[in-house]
Nucleic acid binder design. Structure first.
Lengths: 355, 355
DNA sequence: ATGAAAGCGCTAACAA
DNA sequence: TTGTTAGCGCTTTCAT
């Protein structure tokens, strides 16, 4: 892997053609005699020439680089989106810069570093609507939103999980098991997906003719500990819930632990359902019933949308929704009979998915 | 955020100077009169000019981009390293491309796309020694290894967790609790860190005058399910272990579940210790005793080493080790008395770290 | 089908 | 201190 100090002209000399012809061969231009092409390709192979991407970028005005901004890179959900996006980018001949911008200021700084310098051709933003992010977005620049639906005035492509539908399915599952007092632990209220999941929760309750009690809805922050706390409070109510819908799996885990701390069996006395199907969900105690979402696919699709937006800036900007799938494990069960069910914890043999 | 079609010459005209002077101002060259500088800066501000990074790269021969290759982006450990690296890169004025290369072929392809095209100035590789990755690495190119120590012939900077020391501490903790039959569930045997952790395990046993039984060492693949399986087998031995050291937290979780499936109380009848201290470890059942490693710091340091290697190619290439810290929670306890301890599971109130 | 010329937007060497 | 002249390595006119 020698330093590619060779230029297009070196190859041209070796092949006995002009440097322009070499350029044509590199770019697959059709107007080259097969013989010439062969000669040039032989020279390229022999000398081990590889084009300088920066020079190409400058001359062609295209960098073939995209960026993806996420609140962080460690959340499994985000990481998986990025993995999908990165794979799709490479497939389309693009490179991806993924950066974490926990707060708005960092977000604005990043945009201002990447876009005006003309380093990237397009931008993917995960969770565009937390804080005031969108106001820092460049105008007339190819952008795709992931998780968060465009407000009026934003003609950008967007792809989200079907948050509303996923929440509705989760709550519907609980209702089918006979639960009537169904609590919800939400994510931060400023996030779009939190709101959509709240909507889905209410939709499911309404469809079943159940009334939503405000006391049964508690805000968490996606962390297990926030849900642990929330669950302890919920179970202190004069009429505690018999089931909890946690808006993500980490919080579901916090709820499970709180139940254990309170000596409540799950699902005997309390059912818990999550949302994500994170890799370890089947190893929770008990294995978590949850909604599975294919974040890799979301990332991949987002990248494809973005590539399209870059190549054809005038094209329509679609708004997509990726459905979620109910994964039933052992953290949900029939509503306990009045007066409580069995308090004992059975050491049953659990089956696990192999994820 | 208008399209930066403005060039250095537009600014020069506006400020009534040569384009070169504008370049000097942009680059903080000292040889500019304060007045001229002020005029130029005023013009820049007024026009909203921002330099074209690609043109700069071509002219200066520097891209200020680095890449980090990891087996995947979703492993918490890797994601955290990348987060740290990315933060440090930005701080030093570099951008980071992080890519996942699950197998050797993808790894080689990536290297071949990034390096000869002169797009990046340096390379960070997480787990350089799984499969035959190192043979695809470019020669004479600034590189830093993360996790995996250089073999002979590789004069590259490297930073790893102190795998050996971390394993030793973990096993030592079990020994101090009185355990003598201590099993280990390893990662894939081809990985450096697996081997180092095995070494640490043996070192700790030897130091205590204990003999390592080959039957007590089982290979997993870092997944919870592999450890679940391994634990079931370990507990079938005529002389089962009283404690298990799992080489990562996910596998420790698998071991915990296997214990539950077998009706064994943890830590009453079986102690389990992990390695990682992943965010959810304190929410395992029981909360997991484990070794904490600061992967963010490792990533940050790796990036700093790389920047240094890029700036001063002739400098010495250090090999660093980041220590790990024992985090005692509730999955480890005294060796059970002969004949077994209490089989009952107490619903004690657990404290959690807030991570 | 091929080559020559001109420039992408900037930095670097030299001159003034 | 500032301006002038050349490129960086390639693509894109435009001739031929």
């Amino acid at each position: 892997m020698q330093r590619s100090r060779l230029t297009i002209r070196d190859v041209a000399r070796q092949a006995g053609v002009s440097h322009q012809t070499v350029s044509r061969v590199i770019n697959g231009d059709a107007l080259v005699t097969p013989e010439t092409r062969a000669r040039v390709e032989a020279a390229i192979a022999e000398m081990g020439y590889q084009p300088n991407a920066i020079a190409r970028s400058l001359a062609a005005g295209r960098t073939h680089m995209l960026a993806c901004l996420a609140p962080n890179l460690t959340d499994y959900t985000f990481a998986r989106i990025i993995e999908g996006a990165e794979a799709a980018c490479r497939q389309h001949g693009f490179l991806l810069i993924s950066s974490s911008a926990p707060e708005e200021a960092a977000f604005a700084a990043l945009i201002n570093e990447l876009v005006p310098s003309r380093r990237i051709e397009g931008l993917m933003v995960i969770n565009p609507y937390i804080d005031q992010r969108t106001q820092h977005l460049p105008q007339n620049f190819p952008t795709v939103f992931i998780g968060g639906h465009p407000r009026a005035g934003h003609a950008v492509a967007a792809i989200t999980l079907d948050d509303c539908g996923a929440a509705r399915s989760a709550v519907h599952h609980l209702i089918e098991l006979g639960h009537q007092r169904i609590a919800m632990i939400t994510g931060p209220l400023v996030e779009d997906c939190t709101q959509d999941r709240i909507t889905g929760y209410h939709t499911a309750l309404q469809a079943a003719g159940l009334k939503a009690s405000p006391a049964l809805s508690v805000a968490g922050d996606w962390s297990a500990s926030s849900a642990h706390q929330a669950t302890l409070e919920l179970m202190k109510l004069k009429q505690p819930p018999t089931a909890i819908f946690a808006q993500n799996d980490r919080m579901a885990l916090g709820a499970l632990r709180a139940a254990r701390d309170l000596g409540l069996s799950v699902p005997g006395q309390l059912s818990v359902i999550g949302l994500d199907d994170m890799p370890l969900a089947s190893y929770f105690d008990p294995p978590l019933t949850t909604m599975r979402q294919d974040m890799f696919a979301i990332g991949r699709t987002a990248a494809q949308l973005l590539v399209q937006a870059v190549e054809q800036p005038q094209a329509k900007q679609p708004q997509l929704r990726q459905p979620a799938e109910l994964i039933i494990r052992q953290s949900t069960g029939k509503k306990p009979a009045k007066g409580g069910g069995s308090h004992t914890r059975k050491a049953t043999r659990h089956s696990h998915s192999s994820r």
